[in-house]
Design a protein around this nucleic acid. Structure first.
Lengths: 308, 308
DNA sequence: CGTGGCAGTTTGTCCAGGACAATGAGCATG
DNA sequence: CATGCTCATTGTCCTGGACAAACTGCCACG
């Protein structure tokens, strides 16, 4: 594995895969079919991608994950791709203005100001509404700004870091009675590194009186099943971001469902498309964050009926 | 992408890659050269790996990352692989006993007890010595226990999660004067998802009076350079875990060094082998955590001399 | 007019078997 | 003992083809 110089010089296919998220096989087949990317070759005949190639690949992947088709996208320029990005909704209400203020501080690199604004949001609206409204709107806005090329990658990293910090701090302040029910095991599938959704869910679940245990991201299914058994979990909750493939999410959830005892519920939430269809497979889809309190109430109702 | 059923049934080569961490190309070439793994085929001729194959692959990868060679390992059984794992050092001193106590709670799934023990360690020894001695020894012990098959993957996840929680909490309690110097930008290279080392470094740096800004893991080099410029960083600090390749680490550090202004120092720490050689490339290697206060003092000395 | 099934197209993943550059090991020489 | 050289080991990349799953558009039917 050589890292070459992704900043100035050309990247190998492996580096292009890591930086863009598009697998090697797919890069080669796109080249064959659509003529993009069209990398030069080094002395050994290995492909060399430019930074601009990788930048365009990232945009393409974001749009494909949002439902577009590669054949339509490959011929477009980088600015035309940005034009296809979903338009940022105008800021009309209070949350919208708050989101704009946060984005503004992010763009001006005012890290402390951003953190203060996040923290102030919690105090002003309470943690539950903050997570459900402000955080949800803000992460969407940041994602859209990134796809549209109005935000650097490092600015997104910075944003995530500050949000994690504030949410973790809030979570530490909540009471966590050890005997609370349901006991919820939180994690993501392998290949899904985004842990922010997990943290948001943990906030709402803990607020709702559940006992949360987070494994962090990327736990293999048999390990999830093992952990659920060891910790006597009533519910396993998964988070799938919008970047995660629909088919992969369904296959993973179905597989995990098969490995869990029938008495353990499986919940799945996040921005991933087609989540609602999971209901057929014995998985409870949480299409938006407001479904979490509902799901908790549902579990408690069922548990109470079983008691009798 | 199908996820199949890694718990019960056979896995495709892509799933085997995701679950074992060994790339597809390497799986095929190992099969050709060493005869392991020897997957069956489905009707279409695609490889089908068993769960046992993947389990052995995980162990092999762990040992290879620790310096063993694949040709020696491929012929061994799963128990012989476990026997090759480094022996856990006997617990003689106070830290050793504390580590044993923590491992014990982890194995008994006493999450609250583990967190209390971690927290108590901070109070008893102070954050600086806690991070330098206890956390360093504990993470090493957990890594060894995992390679030796004495710890499940999910137990390791659980451990990391609790440690992150406690360290983040401690960090929130530290004063962070906005004007403090040096200003340190923290992150890892793409392909290095482990953020624990980053968090430990952030603790020690903040204790040492530096102003830290963490980007979280996996920031591309040009983005690091951009962030360093935007935030007027005096130092960029990278963390490379033991899983990260030596050559890749060097190439990445050298590349980044070239993109940073000469007045910005570049520090690199972590368990990655061959880190010390980076000194030739204008990178300051931090071979163990105790080097961090030293590096800070060195920067302050140089900065003071420049003032005059 | 809506709905379900069917053929055609698009798309991602996998295969074989060869090649090569970088790393590490073993050995000879100063 | 240190340094340099050669050889074996190892991971990554190549080509060009194949195929199954998902999605499209179309038509017939209720």
């Amino acid at each position: 594995m050589t890292f070459s110089s992704p900043g100035a010089g050309p990247l190998t296919i492996g580096e292009a895969e890591r930086h863009s998220g598009v697998p090697k096989e797919t890069l080669r087949v796109w080249e064959r079919r659509y003529g993009f990317p069209a990398p030069t070759r080094d002395a050994a005949g290995d492909r060399l991608y430019t930074v601009a190639d990788v930048e365009k690949l990232k945009r393409m992947k974001a749009l494909i994950d949002a439902g577009e088709r590669p054949a339509q996208l490959a011929g477009l320029g980088i600015d035309e791709l940005a034009a296809r990005a979903p338009k940022p909704a105008p800021a009309n209400d209070a949350v919208g203005e708050w989101v704009e203020a946060a984005l503004d501080r992010l763009r001006r690199h005012d890290v402390d100001g951003l953190r203060d604004l996040l923290q102030a949001g919690i105090y002003a609206r309470g943690l539950e509404r903050f997570v459900q409204d402000n955080v949800a709107a803000l992460t969407r806005a940041v994602g859209e700004a990134w796809v549209g090329g109005r935000l650097q990658v490092y600015e997104e990293h910075l944003f995530t870091e500050q949000l994690v910090r504030v949410l973790r701090g809030a979570l530490d302040g909540l009471p966590r009675p050890p005997a609370a029910r349901p006991r919820v095991l939180l994690t993501t599938a392998p290949g899904e590194p985004h842990a922010l959704g997990l943290l948001m869910a943990e906030c709402l679940l803990t607020l709702g009186g559940a006992r949360c245990l987070s494994l962090g991201p990327e736990t293999p299914p048999e390990q999830i099943a093992g952990a659920a058994a060891a910790h006597d979990a009533d519910v396993v909750a998964l988070s799938f971001s919008g970047m995660f493939g629909e088919a992969a999410a369904r296959a993973f959830a179905r597989d995990l469902r098969g490995q869990l005892p029938a008495t353990t519920e499986l919940w799945a939430g996040g921005a991933c498309a087609g989540l609602a269809d999971l209901a057929q497979d014995g998985v409870r889809p949480l299409v938006n964050l407001a479904d979490i309190p509902e799901a908790l109430a549902g579990w408690r109702f069922a548990a109470a009926r079983k008691e009798r």
